[in-house]
Amino acid sequence: MTAANPRLRRFVEPSALGGFWPALGFTLCYLSFFVLLPLAALALRPWELGASGVWRVLSAPRTVSALELSFGSAFIAACINIVFGTIAAWSLVRYEFPGKRILDALVDLPFALPTAVVGIALTAIYAPHGIMGELLTPFGIRAAYTPMGVIIALIFVGFPFVVRSIQPVLEDLDPEVEEAAATLGAARWRTLTHVVFPAITPAILTGFALAFARAVGEYGSVIFIAGNIPQISEIAPLLIVIRLDEFDYAGAAAIGMAMLSISFVLLFVLNALQAGILRRGAPH
């Protein structure tokens, strides 16, 4: 038993249950093989090019455009999603309407539908002769094979993250608080902006972060509709695939490492922002 060994007791508290060491051992081996070793390769291999080589890869106009497109369109898509996601979460929690339960279940469709399927379906819809393409063409809007197509695909994949982050918080919101605000003479709109909205802001931020993180790395749903023109509609994950096809492992790794690093820094900032909002407590 582990409890018999005082040196080990400091690492794990004694327990009446067994199986700790085998379970932890297996978990660590599994994570090492599937997560840690691969991440080590991603972190180390770019430096085969030397620091100047890594910089040359990352500062190449094609790389910069691809990273800008991936992060920029993920940001725009996440912004659009927090608007419609909040409206959808609100409607699904607060109102009754026909078909509500089916709509609620369909929110998860982007989680279930494979990305390649989403990609060709969106392309069929937004291509010049597709159902949406024909609606947009008279206005001079071209969605397919442009950066706008990238954003449309990223809206699709990110939507459920926002709705599913906000929904449980809205459900738990005590109606009495809103009633109290109303009793004290606050107009409904004022109650919404000063009581409800602050309460769900952390959840909106969570949804934004999840949708954004997912969208930055998205590949399957984007490559069909984007047209993939270098420096115009070529996303960073696609550039990684192109570099790999050229057997430029270090170059591909450098772009991958940069993507992952920027994502983690941004998610860290969002987390800190959220913690700050929570620490201030319930405003007003």
Binding site: L42, G220, P237
Partner: peptide
């Protein structure tokens, strides 16, 4: 962690380990 890694990067990492030049 795997949830925040792009699928393409997930594949890339294994190529870096086990590919012809891995």
């Amino acid at each position: 962690l795997p949830l925040s890694i792009s699928p393409v990067i997930s594949g890339l990492m294994f190529v870096l380990l086990y590919g012809a030049h891995g």
